[in-house]
Design a protein around this nucleic acid. Structure first.
Lengths: 185, 185
DNA sequence: GTCTATAGAGGGATAGAC
DNA sequence: GTCTATCCCTCTATAGAC
């Protein structure tokens, strides 16, 4: 076990930031090393391969998402939990318009990477789908699975369009629509 | 002007197919040359740079989409046009689950390419958004712009999720939902 | 117009000194 | 544990014969 876990975390932070902006393939190890203030050769002390960095970032993003979902789960009413969840895109409108969804962009890229890394694409989507479905189920909806699909699809599509048009307003409009939709259920 | 436009079209076809499966960055010129049965060096007679191939593919995909939209525009009722449009994902469920949407995947990748090519991401989305909005407007909806956004977001999200889970059933379920939604308007 | 050979740059990965 | 130097492969692009 390395002592200086600080350096490892700086590398992960840099990789996460750069991959969000540029994608995984586009991001080079020297990009990451420079951004983290670590010499290139030293990266290999913390990660055996670039692939391993990719796997770490996938796990990190799933963890960060789970943390936000746990935060939302504190609300007593399941509908309130889903409404709370919408605060994330609402508060990150510019970042989403600039770089897209951290889960969605990575998921799409990994599925086209032609490497075993593409198997990590499914868990990236499942984390949101499963939590969302649970909330609709707790609302007593027998069609919870369909509603979850509609909800997540709407949000993922929202990010893709907002990113294509570089338009935070797209986020505003679709978040508002989803709010009203949740209220109407 | 080259005589053997057949060869150029074979290269475009190969590039389009490979980029859909592997993404633009991942697809090498020798991949394309091999798939088209053209020697590597000869590619440069038809395209000055790889970038130029990318631009051509973007234009091709927009054109193919326009052709389908024109086909749909033949229906007299705007609602029927939108329902007709849904036949595309319905008939291409396996391909969409395998590789995602030809417009959406490319749009997301280009926005993260860090090259001037990323400006082509907007027209990729606009072609669908504008046509869709026009149909809702002709249905007499003053909120046509919002409805178009909801519709396209739902479809783009659908493709992303179906691709992440490699599940054509996701396409079936969300197409069916959108059908009912259109009927209910 | 077609094709071979290869230049040139970039990037993942390693060797080995400290 | 840290860092420099470098290997080696891949990929874009070009030179130049036919």
């Amino acid at each position: 076990m390395p002592r200086n876990t600080n350096k490892r975390e700086r590398l992960i932070g840099a990789a996460d930031r750069l991959i969000l902006r540029q994608g995984f393939k586009q991001t080079t190890l020297s990009d990451i090393a420079n951004d983290a203030g670590v010499p290139l050769g030293n990266v290999y002390y913390y990660f055996k391969t670039k692939r391993e960095i990719g796997e770490t970032i996938v796990r990190t993003r799933i963890d960060v998402t789970r943390q936000w979902l746990d935060e939302c789960s504190r609300e007593t009413d399941p509908r309130e939990r889903l409404l709370k969840f919408l605060e994330f895109p609402a508060c990150n409108r510019e970042a989403l318009a600039e770089s897209g969804c951290a889960l969605g962009t990575l998921s799409y890229e990994l599925r086209h990477s032609g490497s075993p890394l593409d198997e990590m694409s499914r868990p990236l989507m499942d984390v949101m789908l499963e939590w969302t479905e649970r909330q609709f189920a707790e609302m007593g909806r027998s069609d919870a699975s369909d509603l979850a699909l509609q909800f997540v699809a709407s949000l993922q599509g929202m990010c893709l369009i907002a990113n294509a048009l570089t338009s935070p307003e797209i986020i505003d409009r679709l978040v508002e629509h989803n709010r009203r939709w949740l209220q109407s259920l």
